[in-house]
Design a protein around this nucleic acid. Sequence first.
DNA 1: TATGAATGAGCATTCATTCAT
DNA 2: TATGAATGAATGCTCATTCAT
Lengths: 214, 214, 214, 214
Amino acid sequence: MDVDERRRPKRLPREVRERQILDAAVLVFSRHGYHDASMDEVSEVAGVSKPMIYAYLGSKEDLFGACIRREATLLFEAVTAGVRDALAPDMQLWHGLGAFFRFVGENRESWRVLHRQAASHGGPFNDELLQMRARAITLVTGLLTRSTPRPERDEQARLSTEALAAALVGSAESLADWWLDHPDVTDKMLASWLMNLAWMGFGDLVDGKVWTPS
Amino acid sequence: MDVDERRRPKRLPREVRERQILDAAVLVFSRHGYHDASMDEVSEVAGVSKPMIYAYLGSKEDLFGACIRREATLLFEAVTAGVRDALAPDMQLWHGLGAFFRFVGENRESWRVLHRQAASHGGPFNDELLQMRARAITLVTGLLTRSTPRPERDEQARLSTEALAAALVGSAESLADWWLDHPDVTDKMLASWLMNLAWMGFGDLVDGKVWTPS
Amino acid sequence: MDVDERRRPKRLPREVRERQILDAAVLVFSRHGYHDASMDEVSEVAGVSKPMIYAYLGSKEDLFGACIRREATLLFEAVTAGVRDALAPDMQLWHGLGAFFRFVGENRESWRVLHRQAASHGGPFNDELLQMRARAITLVTGLLTRSTPRPERDEQARLSTEALAAALVGSAESLADWWLDHPDVTDKMLASWLMNLAWMGFGDLVDGKVWTPS
Amino acid sequence: MDVDERRRPKRLPREVRERQILDAAVLVFSRHGYHDASMDEVSEVAGVSKPMIYAYLGSKEDLFGACIRREATLLFEAVTAGVRDALAPDMQLWHGLGAFFRFVGENRESWRVLHRQAASHGGPFNDELLQMRARAITLVTGLLTRSTPRPERDEQARLSTEALAAALVGSAESLADWWLDHPDVTDKMLASWLMNLAWMGFGDLVDGKVWTPS
DNA sequence: TATGAATGAGCATTCATTCAT
DNA sequence: TATGAATGAATGCTCATTCAT
């Protein structure tokens, strides 16, 4: 047995080091934002020297990208795990929303990095984020489309459906933000409120009831 | 006529210079974000030397704050100008949304600065933005509340109404973002889609029709 | 009669303006030191715009030089006014010291500028200060020399006398500084203490009593 | 032997670098004064990049403070090393003065930084300098007091003794300055001149011989 | 005479990034 | 593998100084 087992092990497999670094980076980026976060702080929090970070994960930008990718993947997996194909479309949406809010509630830092920090960047991060959001919109669009009885809908209708999906996704994001200032609310409440807005509103559209300004 | 009328005037009243500087700053901040924007570029774009910027508008942070304040005020004035108290609640919302999307369509840079850049900052800017959004949410909450026949609603209902308002405001923001990637859509289309989602969905709620996961 | 006589007169003779500026400059320089003093503050305190300062008194360096010259002249005049040629050498020194400490007590800012700020500059100011001090040393050297019975003193003795004069002048300066931290002491006390040190010590030397390391 | 032994070593322990930087800083500060000295020049003279300076010694103000502290400590150690407690008070003063002038003669830059530059600053440096001088005055006061036969001296006498000590310390400083313009004089000469002034004058006071203006 | 408007030039400071060990 | 040591390159900000009126 080692005399001093608590000492930080010097040599760890690359995989472990990378996770340590990414964990630290997510924390630091979520705290200060991309620019105000310093590689020094990341290395300090991770307990790893800076050259290691550069060796394993590349530049600051690369590191940030890796954070975004990992967190986005986790979020997406959580949501899709909730959406079971076998269920009816409304139930799928319901479970997806539930999974989304649950993830946000349990991973505040991840959400902050994804929603706030990454959004304020032109270029690569934005692209990845947009892709993420696009996938979410596609998913929701599918649910909405499948729930309509008349699949022969025209191009105009298709576009409006996608727009609605975008609006729903945006609603969810905004509610998640709003949640930060209203901690008493539960994830379930958020999900059911949004579900009502989404499904009831859309249900009317399906029935041909349309609001018009006149 | 003067042969060289286009020559840039050398001495301008303070008011004019300040506007020049703010215009340039909004442009530069919207392009690069707060941190990557340099005062040098602002001064170059404004056609004004840096010392003038500092003399008239203070530090970089002050300058950014001034941008936010000016643009937010303009946006809010545009929206409230559309919302006439005399109209029915749904018409008020309709006009407000129309004014919102029109403003965003005509002032892309302003919107970028407000929505993307300012959000990624802790501290004072965020506060001001949150206040702005809070005012918008309050406005919408009022419209939704006034449109219900039973004003004796309980606390629970009040909260859910505010949450819906937050969701709607978020939807509008997200749609504005989505718009950037779908330039073919018009502001009118966006407004009417969102109106349908909002009013129809909420209308059902008013009628007591509630979606439940069962 | 003028309706508003209190308004600051716009047009003043050059002489008056220059005095205003110099007064302000001495105050500002004594407060912040040469480098930390800004021309802006000088112009503000003087109630005169910056271009006037440059027109009348030249660059910042020129302005500082003018301050030094004026204050040094005042100080020197005060001291020489105390030293009457008709008196015995020791009485001359006594009156000179009295005048010196009285001036310092009544003109703290002047003294600060002269002693502290001006000393920390290489180049022109130092030269002027050194000249000022050299004149003081010459004056004192004369007093000491005249009080010796044997004017045929050799070069070695002349040099040591000048050194003593330098030491006395330095003592006076240091005591003036020490005074700032001991306000209870009066100018008379300072003068008599220093007089005792100077004259008693020197008197012994004149008498041929010399301290040697045994 | 190595062919290229003169190559500047790239990696040096922190201690060595700090000394290099401090040496360079003392030189540069003594040449230009605090404000006109640029960190660029310090880094250039030290052969070290600016970030190292900031990493090791902090801001420009910190760096200046470190210089003052180091040089003042060296000076004080040199002086106290000369003052042996076992000796008679006059011999102690004699050796102390000798050590002082020797140090100044051998470390012109140090003296310039201590005496000229540091004095022209309000705040912390001044405080430290004043403390230094206060310690010197205390030391001398002790010597003077111990040399008097009547220890039961009253408060008035105590104060005048301290004033004399301040005057002596000031004399030494002034003579050191005067020396810069009279390089032919040796440190020994300076010490003996001042010793004569000091001890002879003070000796008379002890004997009750007092100069009075009448 | 008198000044608000304007700027060139410089300086302290920071940080992502890379050697040399 | 792992890191303390080191830096190039930028950027926010200030100030003495001068036009144009």
